[in-house]
Computed example of a mutant assay.
Amino acid sequence: MNLFLLKGFEVELFTGLYTGKHIGVSEQVANNFSDFVKEPDQRNLEYITKPERNYQSIKELLLEPRRRLRKWLAQKDLTILPGSTLSLGDSSNFERSDLTNSYHEFIELNYGTKVVTASIHINLGIEDLDLIFSALRLVRCEAALFLALSASSPFLDGSATGFHSQRWNQFPKTPAKVPLFLNHLHYVDWIEDQLGKGVMCNERHLWTAVRPNGVRRPYELNRLELRICDLITNCDLLLAITALLELRVISLINNPEKLDPLKGSTLTPDELSDLSDINEQEVAKNSLNATLHDWQTGKTVFCRDWIEELILEVTPLAIELNVLYLLEPIKEVLNKGNQSMRWLNGYTNGISLSDLLQQTIQEMEAEEKENFVNSISVNYP
Rank of each mutant, 00 (worst) to 15 (best):
V314K: 02
E46N: 08
V333W: 12
E271I: 02
L109K: 13
Y111D: 01
L81G: 12
D128N: 15
N101D: 15
V37N: 12
V314C: 05
L221H: 05
G162M: 01
C201K: 09
G83D: 13
L259Y: 15
I126W: 11
I120M: 06
L86I: 00
N54W: 00
L63P: 06
V249M: 09
S152R: 08
N374W: 00
E246M: 06
S152M: 07
I241D: 04
Q75P: 09
D305P: 00
K263W: 07
N101I: 14
V178Q: 13
L247Q: 01
R137D: 08
G337S: 06
P381D: 10
Q42H: 05
Q170F: 05
N222Y: 06
I330K: 04
E127A: 11
H293R: 15
V333E: 11
D90L: 01
N286K: 03
A74C: 03
I120P: 05
L147W: 00
Q75F: 01
N279V: 13
R167T: 10
M200P: 06
I120Y: 09
P40F: 10
V29N: 04
S57I: 00
H22C: 01
G24N: 10
D355S: 06
E192G: 05
L182M: 12
P329A: 04
E370S: 11
E95N: 08
L245W: 07
M341N: 04
H186I: 01
K114H: 14
L326E: 07
F372E: 14
L357M: 11
D41N: 11
L231E: 14
A148V: 08
N93D: 12
L310I: 15
S165T: 10
P51G: 01
R227F: 03
P154L: 10
T291S: 13
S92I: 00
E10T: 03
Q358H: 06
E368R: 04
N31K: 13
A148S: 11
L124V: 02
L206E: 04
D77F: 11
L238R: 02
K114P: 05
D193Q: 11
Q296E: 12
T242Q: 01
L62E: 10
E367C: 07
I126C: 10
A144P: 04
N338S: 04
S102I: 13
L231W: 12
L334E: 08
I351F: 02
F171M: 03
A318K: 05
P218E: 13
D274A: 11
T117V: 11
D305T: 12
N2A: 08
F181P: 13
N213G: 03
I132C: 12
L5W: 04
R304Y: 00
F155Y: 15
Q362H: 07
L6R: 01
Y380A: 12
D35N: 10
E52L: 09
L99C: 14
F163W: 09
K76P: 03
E320S: 08
T348E: 13
L324G: 00
S153E: 15
W295M: 13
E64R: 05
V378M: 04
L252Q: 07
R66G: 00
L356P: 03
T348F: 02
N279T: 07
L327A: 02
L78S: 06
Q56A: 09
G112F: 15
N371I: 09
